[in-house]
Write a protein that binds this DNA or RNA. Structure first.
Lengths: 315, 315
DNA sequence: GAAAATCCGGAACACGTTTTCCTGCTCGAA
DNA sequence: TTCGAGCAGGAAAACGTGTTCCGGATTTTC
C-alpha cells in the first residue's frame, strides 16, 4: 500500500508553485479565461510536477453536477445486465462520467435504500435495468432516468428495449431462405413477456410454414430435451425448431443428436441471446439471435447524457 | 421523468423551517452535539416535511471522505467478478458506501484513465480484481487498495485469494471416501496458474491413487470431450475424473455418456467453480467445488473498510 | 503626451455540509 | 442579589473548486 497521511496537492499548492492565484490555475487548466500562453504553460508544468489531480468533489459542488450516473439493476446474475453495463460504461467514460453500481437483488427495500443514496450523491442521471423485459414500476426521483431492457410502465418515460419481435421474425426469414417448410417453436414460460412476443412473432412470420403450436416451458436445457420428444411424437416430419433461448436450443440439439437426427441436416435449430457459452459448446455451433445488449447499453447511456444535457427523448 | 429545475432543499431550508441554525440541523440529524429532544424532533420533522436528503458532496468535502470505493476489474465477462462485486457491494452498502465500477477490458490505457478518475474522485479505497489468479502488477495510488482473486505481485499488499490447493485436495478426499482408487485429472492450459495449482494439489492428495499424468488443455467442453477419449485409451480402468472447471467436467460427462460409461457408476466426475449453468444442466448434475466468490468479495470489502479505517492487514 | 481600449490576473464569493469554538441563557447555591 | 456552573444552540471557518467582477498594467490612438 502506498503512503497515506500526506494528502494530495490541491489547487492552492499548484498556485503557490507557479506563483499565481488559485483562480488563474483553474482558468489555465480548464482553458477558460484569457491567459498568456506562457502563464498557462507555467501552471501546467507546476501541476504536472506536483502530480496534481483536481478534486472532483470540489468541482461537483461548484458546477452543480456530480459527473456520476447510477445504475440500478435487479439482475444479480449479470446475464443480461453485464453487456448493458459495459456498453453504458463505454459511452459514459467518454464524457468523464463514472458509474455507480446498485444491485437491488429484487428487494424493494434495497432499491429504496439505493435510490436515496443516489439522490443524496446528486447523481446526474440513473439507468434502470432488469432481468426481464416486463415493464416495471417507474421510479420517482427528480433526476433524469432512462430504462434499459425492462421499460417503465409509464410510456412518457424514456425506455430502450430489445426488438424481440424483429429478432424472432428474422430467424424465420432465415429458415425460409434455407428452404425449411415445417417450423416448430420451443420457448420459456408463457408468463414471460419475451417468450410470448417471440412466439407470436414466430407464428406471424411463419404462418404458412408453422407446424402445431408453440411449446411453452422453462428457460432450461432440460426443457429443450423434453420438448424434442414431444415434438417428434406429434410432428415427426418437422425440419426446423426455433428456440426462445440458447439454453433451450442446446437442449434441443443434444436430444436430437441422441435420437440420431442430424443437425442441421434433418432439423435446423436456432437459439436466441447469443450466449457464447451455449452457442460455442453446442454441437454443431448454434445459429442464434444477438440482442446486441452492449449496443443497447451504449444507446441508453447516450440518451441519458442527452437528457442530462436537457434534451429528453420520451417514449 | 420527474420535475427538474427546482433544486432539492438544502440544510439551510430545513434550518429556516425549523427556526434553528444550520449547524443545529446538522447536529440534530447526525446525533452529534448536545441538543434537547424537543429540538431534535422539530428538526427531524422539518427535514421530513421538505423531503430533505443531505448532499453527500458537501459531506464528502467537509468530512474528507467520499464514502465511495472504486472497483477495477479486467474481467469483462463478469464470470468471476460478478459474485465478487455482489459480495463487496453487500459489505459496503452496510457502511453507506457506494461502489463505482471500472472495467478496463485489459487495456492498460483504460486502466490508467480509470485510476486517474478514481483518484480525482478521492475514492476512499480501491478493489482490484481480475479474471485470472495470476498475480498482477500492483497499482500505485495514495489510497488503500485490496486485491481480490488476482493478488498483487507485492506480498506486502493486501490480497484475498481463493484456496485452489485446498479445493482440489478436498475433491480428492471426497472421492477417496467414495472408494475411488484410480483418479485422473483434466484441466485447463498449463500456462494458467490455477490449472497448475489444482493439478499439483490433486497429484499430492491422490499420490497413491493417481493414474497417469494430469492432462492440460483448455477451459472448454470440447477439450473435456477430447480428453475422455485420450484417457480411456491409455487408462481404460479409471474410476474417477476430477476436472479443472465445470465446463470441462460437462464435456467429460457428455462424452462418457456417449460412450455408455455410467456416471457416476463407472466413473465419478467432479467439476470446479460451481457454475450453476453447467452443473445443473449436466447429466447427472455435477459435484463441484464452490469457490465462494461472493464470500471472497465480502471479505475483500471488509478488509478494505478496515484499511480505510486505518488498520491495514498486509499479506 | 494623454486618454481610451485592451488584456491579464487577483480577490471574493458560491456550492452544502461538518466541526470547533464561543456566547448567552438558566438554574442552583451562597 | 450575585456569581459560577452547565447546557443549548449559534457564528464562523474549513473542505476544494469554479466563476464573476474588478483593478492594474500595457498597448493603442489621436
Amino acid at each position: 500500500m502506498a503512503s497515506r497521511g500526506t494528502r494530495p496537492p490541491g489547487i492552492k499548492e499548484v498556485a503557490k508553485l507557479a506563483d499565481v492565484s488559485t483562480s488563474t490555475v483553474s482558468k489555465a487548466l480548464n482553458g477558460r479565461g484569457p491567459l498568456r500562453a506562457e502563464t498557462i504553460e507555467r501552471v501546467r508544468l507546476a501541476a504536472e510536477q506536483l502530480g496534481f489531480v483536481p478534486d472532483s468533489r470540489g468541482r461537483a459542488l461548484a458546477s452543480g453536477r456530480s459527473f456520476t450516473v447510477g445504475l440500478i439493476t435487479t439482475d444479480s446474475s449479470g446475464r443480461f445486465s453485464i453487456p448493458i453495463v459495459l456498453g453504458a460504461e463505454d459511452a459514459l467514460s467518454a464524457g468523464e462520467m463514472a458509474l455507480v453500481l446498485c444491485d437491488t437483488r429484487d428487494d424493494p427495500l434495497r432499491e429504496q435504500h439505493y435510490l436515496k443514496s443516489l439522490v443524496s450523491r446528486r447523481v446526474d442521471g440513473i439507468i434502470v435495468t432488469g432481468r426481464r423485459v416486463e415493464p416495471r414500476e417507474p421510479i420517482d426521483v427528480p433526476i433524469p432516468v432512462v430504462y434499459a431492457f425492462s421499460p417503465s410502465t409509464d410510456p412518457s418515460d424514456t425506455s430502450v428495449v430489445v426488438d424481440d419481435h424483429g429478432g424472432a421474425a428474422s430467424t424465420v426469414r432465415h429458415l425460409h431462405t434455407l428452404g425449411r417448410k415445417r417450423i416448430a417453436h420451443v420457448t420459456g414460460p408463457e408468463s414471460h413477456l419475451s417468450a410470448r412476443i417471440r412466439a407470436a412473432a414466430t407464428l406471424e412470420a411463419a404462418s404458412t410454414t408453422f407446424t402445431g403450436q408453440p411449446l411453452f416451458g422453462e428457460w432450461s436445457e432440460r426443457w429443450g430435451r423434453m420438448a424434442v420428444d414431444t415434438l417428434l411424437r406429434d410432428r415427426p416430419n418437422l425440419d426446423a425448431i426455433t428456440c426462445g433461448s440458447d439454453q433451450i436450443a442446446r437442449g434441443v440439439c443434444d436430444r436430437l443428436r441422441e435420437l440420431d437426427r442430424s443437425v442441421p441436416g434433418d432439423v435446423a435449430v436456432t437459439g436466441y441471446d447469443n450466449w457464447s457459452v451455449m452457442t460455442a459448446a453446442s454441437r454443431p455451433p448454434l445459429t442464434t439471435v444477438d440482442m446486441q445488449l452492449e449496443e443497447l447499453g451504449r444507446r441508453t447511456a447516450t440518451l441519458l447524457l442527452a437528457a442530462i444535457a436537457g434534451t429528453p427523448h420520451p417514449g
